[in-house]
Design a protein around this nucleic acid. Structure first.
Lengths: 333, 333
DNA sequence: CTGAAAGCGCTTACAG
DNA sequence: CTGAAAGCGCTTACAG
């Protein structure tokens, strides 16, 4: 029914091996032979069967990207960038929504989709530091986001402590005195690492550390940001600035401030983290830490493919993603 | 190296066939045998090789979702819903960013990823009505979005004409007289279908049709909406309401209005289409047509799987997605 | 370059 | 239920 390699060979009047050589771009093929084969492929509309190829070669040229949820703008933008970076290298990306730690680990440990995929780029859920004892994982794995307990894994991320320090320092340089933080969490996850940078900045500026200004949230969505901001507004002495640990939290906080009739940035200045498109078009537009997502995607894919090929250095890599602080209306209206 | 079916069989002391029967949930297996096999599977950490299975069965339980871009919130939300709906049925979704008509058609005609996938859900780019002569496509295909030229394909979409009529009528009921439309396009695509509903509503209300209020855009992103709105504001007699053909356009338009210092909805009321989360948290929150994305995802997947299985009715299906008009601050502040 | 053949790991008649 | 075997469509030594 489907056209097979042997059909192409028959039509071109060459051997199966030769067709395979043409398809896989092997050397020692005369231009004439190549042309003949390519003509046959085109005439028959032949497409190699990837299942057969992958079964035989033990490689599929598929990689997985495991993210908490693809509907979240940051992950949607990241997924798009990673898909493009992979496509450029002839690789297809399978996107997996882990929706939580247990699922994610299960996916990885479950042997990677029945050996279909060659490796995985794994972005653990931001709310909980995942126990990744995956060093002994069967297939190559590159970790995204905050460095998690365990180490020993290839890892690509922004320097979150430094970036958070910069974000907070920006607020301080604007003369803000009571700077809140939204998205604080324990463990080794995002909420903890970014708090470290936040606290360092306060300390460096000689500002007091007020625990009531540190809002621990349940998640990193707009509604969490809105709820945390509402809580901050009930304080006897509310903040004059807020550093939100991602843009979604910041957008939620802005919503609450708008509902409360407060002026941004005059009454409260707001900074986010991620630089999703949403924040650029918001009124006021959102000041935020902007990681270079293209750089991240390209380097994560390249690193993973190095591992799959078994080339590159043996030592584990720790790549630091460049970022900038994008100053917009939410701090400098 | 990898554990094979025969290893499991050896360990469990049964035949290969029996293990296969257990894995595939075939009948006529005693509880005792099943338990023995499952114990062996667990002990060895066996995972079936999907390439081998797919090669043999001619089915992979993979489907593709082809969308213009996954970083666009509507498609990100849709992709997430479709992934979940498929997962519930044991199916994995491969997401393809077509980034344009030519690519998309190429993908489909190119034989669907070397026969890996069993079928495709295809959401053609909204800016151009795609010539889909895919009825003779090798694999089952379900079309999303506006009905395109050709017909004869399974299709799942909202009644865009009616929804656009409702959106425009809502604006009229608020007493608006000069209602603009952003995102107008030719052909049979979104921009044309939604304009039809828009024009009908004006006509039904006896409002004049002013061509200068119909803005044809190059795309459906925030920047297109912002640009169109700027253009509308240069009119000698600017509009007092705008129906944007998607939420991203509306968000861009809102940004322009904010920059111009105009009040929404007092000066200009704005309606969108899609109900992305972004619009719900915007200030002002966005009035919009809200298609039931879960319904859409579930029915599109179910329909495609019916086709793949060869069950269900022979006649082509045309499923209409339920929607509601979500009235929010951008029209009723 | 060619040609014949083995084998990747499954599923599936087939004979018992 | 078992057991031996064929075959899905490739890639890859192997001998020429």
């Amino acid at each position: 029914m489907a056209i097979r390699l042997s059909d192409v060979a028959a039509r071109a009047g060459v051997s199966v091996k030769t067709v395979s050589n043409v398809i896989n771009d092997y050397p020692h093929i005369t231009e004439q032979t190549r042309a003949k084969v390519e003509a046959a492929i085109a005439a028959l509309g032949y497409r190699p069967n990837v299942s057969a190829r992958s079964l035989r070669k033990g490689r599929s040229d598929f990689i997985a990207l495991a993210i908490p949820e693809m509907a979240s703008p940051y992950f949607a933008e990241l997924g798009a960038a990673i898909s493009r970076a992979a496509k450029r290298r002839g690789i297809t990306v399978l996107i997996d929504q882990t929706e939580g730690e247990a699922e994610a680990e299960k996916l990885v440990l479950d042997g990677m989709r029945g050996q279909l995929i060659d490796g995985i780029i794994f972005s653990p859920i931001t709310t909980a530091p995942t126990r990744i004892d995956l060093a002994e994982t069967a297939k190559p794995l590159v970790l995204l986001g905050e460095r998690h307990a365990g180490g020993g894994l290839d890892h690509v991320a922004v320097d979150s402590v430094q970036a958070s320090f910069d974000a907070t320092t920006h607020l301080i340089s604007l003369g803000r005195q009571r700077i809140a933080a939204i998205g604080v969490g324990g463990g080794a996850g995002t909420g903890s690492v970014r708090r470290k940078g936040y606290r360092r900045a306060l300390k460096a500026a000689g500002l007091p550390h007020d625990p009531s200004l540190e809002l621990a949230g349940t998640g990193y969505h707009r509604d969490d940001g809105a709820a945390s901001m509402r809580e901050l507004l009930t304080l006897p002495d509310p903040p004059d600035a807020v550093f939100c640990f991602n843009d979604l939290l910041a957008l939620g906080a802005l919503r609450t401030l708008a509902e409360a009739g407060l002026k941004v940035p005059d009454d409260v200045a707001v900074v986010g983290f991620d630089d999703i498109e949403d924040g650029r078009y918001h009124s006021p537009s959102l000041t935020t830490i902007s990681p270079d997502k293209e750089w991240l995607a390209d380097n994560a894919v390249a690193l993973l493919l190095d591992r799959i090929a078994g080339t590159g250095e043996a030592a584990r890599c720790d790549l630091t993603v460049p970022y900038t602080l994008q100053i917009r209306e939410s701090t400098c209206g």
